[in-house]
Design a protein around this nucleic acid. Structure first.
Length: 831
RNA sequence: GCCCUGGUGGCGGAAUCGGUAGACGCGUCGGACUUAAAAUCCGAUUGGGCGAAUAACUCAGUGCCAGUUCAAGUCUGGCCCAGGGCACCA
């Protein structure tokens, strides 16, 4: 066995052997229970970054650990390969986005292989390939037939820089999630998916996801934004044209209905023109025009002073008979509720601000009896008792919510209502590099889905990528003109492509049956492999990808394509990789190139380091010294094996009689069992790889220390050492995949260490032979005494009281109480 | 404003049940080996006090203030700070 550790040499060697022997191929059929370990698949942007390295290493170690524990593990990889960067690169270099993407995939695949990841590459999925996007289109058509896809004219988020629309989830603080430029409103006819039909079940089923963190679940719950309230309809008393109109409002505070002093409709409210008097028309039109021009950022700024104009008409409050004015103001949002708000300035801070500005009246209807307020300076939004509310006076406001709504239901001017903030998912994109939406427009027959046997609708090749401000697909001469599948007449193809988040909403299903050319996947296979047992990825997908995928799974279940309702049983959201305290980014110039680490230290060092310093869910601060430290540790492990190789026997390592060993040998055997137990538990319990690695180090240190005390080894020593070192190799094999394999073979093994079962521990041996009794006086540590494990409580007490230290401290004092914690501690309370 | 997560040495972080705070590592300092360097190995490393610089002793210490308890990083109540999410959502 070579005395020096040459990672570059051994890593290449084993990667080749594993690939040639198909070491990581996963059969669909097996006697073993299944385990599906999945990393969020990457966008092929060019090169791996350290975030990828962290993500994939975590999942790889989990996959290998589960395999060793006897599971049939599915651990696939693929490419989320549609999207704008490819198109932008194409524009810049005049190349085809496909060429750019394929080259990136090739390079990144090479890097993944260098990292020693145990993927079954036979199941690779690439979303931009026709054999995949054919099925994305097919699924679109199924959703369309089910009525879950529709087209409508709507105010949508438009990013001018990306020249496309965006989903609500892709607008972050009024800016484009990808390029950070300000998003505008545009009125366009666009394709939507009815994710709102699933709002309730998406919210409810969060409770089933016991393997997800609360942070992600609350983010989703907030995004869905359920609220319970009521709809009230207010008749308009003075429409200019004499129309009989009602204005419905949604409120979560029906208890305050007697305090309404005005009513606000959104500037985009559908009936607004019918509700505006001749005298107010000009002012209202000006106000509406301004609102339309404003960007999302301007409009949503909380610092902005509220503005509005009166419409000139009035409503009647059916509860009180009071007449109050109608206003329009942009603090009412057309997309939420009914687009109209009943304003109770005394008990709502927004209405209060508005009323103060325009001198609208205040009417107090909720009071805290202990501390009454006239609401002249601020709205009172806390619980209280109703006043000025007729028959409801004296009622607690929580009860009044129900009672008042019930009255409205009885009398026919309102009902209970559950409202969600979630909006339908806008999926059309005015870009080239995505799956074409498979519909055509026929002058006679209207919108026609492309028949399934004509899929895939292929992306055209004859396009000019240098066009600015419109989709390159529009430059194709062959794509747009087609025939109607219904009447055979002239028709035009849809030129919008699908949001790439559609592609990534079902890829995890395709891995179960990646080569199926009849269906996106067979039902049996997805039912067998899914749900994903462990999903690992960044927190940035907490809403976007994870919500969409949950929706897709539920919708496909309702289509009868699969039989489960949540795709990801357990979710680990790994933290970011930082350098010098901030996120690694090209613009900051604080990136670390994985290639350099592989080259200088090897993949095993990279894998060990990326897991070592922080628990997976927390942010990880990259340090060059830390890498160096891990490299030194692997060298130290290698030297331990290499320098003792002649005395190590795999047969002895497999097991021998542990009883009546020499004291130091017994201690080492115990240390090994303690390590097996600790490491197994740390991985099983939330994947605490940082402590796993400190236990590798502890065991290594213990073996070195033991070895350092021996000049000659007898038979027993050799057996014990074989057991200790070989077990260390097995425990380290999921992390240091190449080093342990090389050592395993150098010690004479035939098969792969990665086919070995996980180590077992003996509970009796996984603890120290004696205990350290902690002796406290008045709760403070005063002495430690080595004691036999078998000591009774009384014996421990006597031991403690006989300690010279304790005698000194208790001398002349009264012992009030003595607490004995078996096998651990004695606390003597003195006065 | 609401919600989530977190706060422990110079740094990353350990610490099943409330029971030795600071595992393991990084950094720093000192030492061994060497002609020298690299590599490797050994030791020290929370702060204060009293010692003579060692040892021993002692007090304080896990964001802050209270509480429960023989005993609190851990439990309870109230606050502060940082990061993240949502937000004119009626």
């Amino acid at each position: 066995m070579k005395q020096n550790y040459f990672p570059q040499e051994i890593e290449k060697k084993w990667q080749k052997i594993w690939e040639e022997s198909g070491a990581f191929k996963t059969p669909d059929k097996s006697d073993k229970p299944k385990y599906y370990a999945l990393s969020m698949f990457p966008y092929p942007s060019g090169k791996l970054h350290m975030g990828h390295v962290r993500n994939y290493t975590i999942t790889d170690v989990i996959a290998r650990f589960k395999k060793a524990q006897g599971y049939n593990v599915l651990h696939p990889m693929g490419w989320d390969s549609f999207g704008l960067p490819a198109e932008n690169a194409a524009m810049k270099h005049g190349a085809d986005p496909e060429k750019w993407t394929v080259e990136n995939i090739a390079y990144m695949t090479k890097q993944l292989k260098m990292l020693g990841l145990s993927y079954d590459w036979d199941r690779e999925v690439t979303t931009c390939k026709p054999d995949y996007y054919k099925w994305t289109q097919w699924l679109f058509l199924q959703l369309y037939k089910k009525g879950l896809v529709y087209k409508k004219e709507a105010a949508v988020n438009w990013c001018d820089k990306c020249a496309t629309v965006l989903a609500n989830e892709q607008v972050i603080d009024g800016k484009c999630w990808r390029c950070d430029s300000e998003v505008e409103k545009k009125y366009l006819s666009q394709w939507f998916i009815k994710i709102t039909d699933y709002a309730e079940v998406l919210l409810e089923d969060l409770d089933k996801l016991t393997g997800w963190g609360d942070n992600v679940k609350t983010m989703q719950a907030n995004w869905i934004g359920k609220s319970q309230g009521a709809i009230f309809r207010f008749p308009v008393v003075d429409t200019p044209n004499g129309d009989k109109l009602e204005v419905p409002v949604y409120t979560t505070r029906p208890d305050t209905v007697h305090g309404i002093t005005y009513l606000v409709v959104a500037p985009e409210y559908k009936d607004i023109e019918k509700l505006t008097t001749q005298e107010n028309k000009e002012a209202v039109e000006t106000y509406r025009a301004n609102a339309r021009k404003m960007t999302e950022i301007e409009r949503l700024s909380t610092e902005r002073v509220k503005t509005g104009v009166p419409l000139g008409t009035h409503c009647k409050n059916p509860f009180t008979g009071e007449i109050f004015p109608l206003w329009t103001a942009d603090y009412a949002l057309v997309e939420y509720g009914t687009g109209a708000v009943m304003a109770v300035p005394t008990h709502d801070t927004r209405d209060f601000d508005f009323a103060k500005k325009y001198n609208l009246p205040l009417k107090v209807v909720i009071q805290n009896p202990e501390n009454p307020s006239d609401c002249k300076d601020a709205a009172y939004t806390e619980p209280g008792v109703l006043v000025n509310s007729g028959e409801f006076n004296g009622m607690k406001n929580e009860e009044a919510k129900k009672a008042i709504t019930e009255k409205a239901v009885r009398e026919g001017f309102g009902e209970f209502k559950t409202q969600y903030r979630l909006r339908d998912w806008l999926i059309s994109r005015q870009r080239y590099w995505g799956a074409p939406i498979p519909v055509v427009y026929c002058e006679k027959c209207g919108i026609q889905p492309v028949p399934e046997d004509q899929l895939p609708v292929l992306l055209p090749k004859d396009v000019d990528f240098s066009v600015v401000g419109k989709s390159p697909i529009l430059t194709s001469k062959t794509f747009i003109e087609t025939t109607c599948p219904c009447c055979g007449g002239k028709a035009r193809r849809e030129t919008d492509t699908m949001d790439t988040f559609i592609c990534s909403s079902w890829y995890y299903l395709r891995y179960a049956d990646a080569k199926n050319d009849k269906m996106p996947f067979s039902k049996d296979k997805v039912n067998h492999w899914l749900p994903v047992d462990q999903y690992v990825g960044g927190i940035e997908h907490a809403i976007l990808h994870l919500l969409y995928s949950r929706f897709f799974t539920k919708a496909l279940r309702d289509l009868g394509l699969l039989d489960f309702d949540e795709p990801f049983k357990n979710l680990l959201t790994q933290g970011m990789v930082l350098k010098d305290g901030s996120k690694m980014s090209k613009s900051k110039g604080n990136t670390v190139d994985p290639d350099e680490i592989f080259e200088n230290y090897g993949a095993d060092t990279a894998r060990l380091f990326i897991l070592s310093d922080s628990p997976p869910a927390r942010d990880f601060d990259w340090s060059d010294a830390g890498v160096e430290g891990c490299y030194k540790f692997l060298n130290r492990v290698w030297r331990l094996v290499a320098s003792n190789a002649d005395d190590i026997s795999l047969a002895d390592a497999a097991g021998f009689n542990y009883s009546s060993l020499k004291k130091d040998n017994d201690d080492l055997v115990r240390n090994v069992h303690i390590a097996i137990k600790g490491i197994t538990n740390d991985i099983s319990n939330d994947f605490q790889f940082n402590t796993v690695i400190s236990k590798y180090r502890e065991l290594t240190n213990a073996i070195y220390e033991w070895r350092g005390k021996k000049s000659e080894l007898d038979d027993e020593d050799k057996k014990v050492m074989s057991f200790a070192i070989v077990t260390l190799m097995k425990l380290m094999s999921p992390v240091a995949v190449h080093l342990t394999e090389e050592a395993w073979h150098d010690l004479g093994a035939e098969g792969s260490i990665h086919d070995e079962p996980w180590c077992e521990w003996d509970e009796n041996l996984a603890k120290a032979s004696s205990i350290t009794l902690v002796v406290q006086v008045n709760g403070k540590l005063k002495d430690k005494i080595e004691a036999d494990e078998a000591c009774s409580e009384d014996e421990l007490k006597t031991l403690a009281l006989n300690s010279p230290k304790v005698k000194e401290l208790t001398d002349g004092k009264t012992i009030v109480k003595t607490i004995v914690v078996p096998k651990k501690l004695v606390n003597i309370v003195v006065k």
